[in-house]
Design a binder for these strands. Structure first.
Lengths: 110, 110
DNA sequence: TTGACGTATTCCCATATGGGTATATGTTGG
DNA sequence: CCAACATATACCCATATGGGAATACGTCAA
């Protein structure tokens, strides 16, 4: 087997930095593909491909507007990630995190 | 170029479900490779490989104990993910999320 | 109708994945 | 020193990636 498809779930989709950037921009509001191309400095086909992935996992939604397509964020799709990560919050919010880090240094000195 | 290496950062490392499971188990405390093999029902080499990835991105730490190696969680490594996702919290915590979902249904009926 | 525009799709390719299986490395007890 | 044990590595393979470039598709303006 190979690595899971990027369209498998939000975790895989969001592993790609460009896709995170796209979501960051969309967080500010609806954008057309062209807008994203301009704001992110990426090639148009790549933007379209990334949007396709994001759409397949339900992280963005589209709306037609003449010849343009306006994409917008569907933040709810990130909740699974948030929920999973949240379980580990205590590991960095209290002092244990600091202690762990220190022990880290002591045990793996290279 | 191909997909970014799984060892690139926490986002990529955690995209693999098995690795998330490993972290879940480690959240309960230190475990030897054998323990993980038993608890997760995976093959030993696979567990070792996944642990290697997790270690490279700093999500786990090791400690030698005779012939065994005890791995433990380094939750702090997940903070970047938490921080990034947290920016989108409002998108599902308030009513906008619900509204968005409704609009969703109306616009993409198929 | 036609051409320009906005976006999506198709190819090509180097790359690394994750599983399986076999084996290397390292440690301990006797 | 050796055998059993615990873990790590090395291979092999099918698979999909993400970028680049070219092109198809759909829509608008004149």
């Amino acid at each position: 087997m190979a690595r899971a498809a990027t369209t498998t779930d939000a975790f895989n989709a969001v592993a790609e930095p460009r896709r995170r950037e796209i979501l960051d921009v969309l967080a500010a509001g609806e954008r057309s593909v062209g807008d994203l191309v301009a704001e992110l400095g990426l090639a148009q086909p790549q933007v379209s491909k990334h949007l396709k992935v994001l759409h397949e996992v339900g992280l963005v939604a589209v709306r037609e507007d003449g010849r343009r397509r306006l994409y917008r964020l569907n933040g709810g799709g990130l909740k699974p990630i948030h929920d999973w990560v949240a379980r580990f919050e205590r590991h960095w919010e209290d002092r244990f995190g600091v202690l762990d880090a220190v022990l880290e240094q002591m045990e793996e000195p290279e």
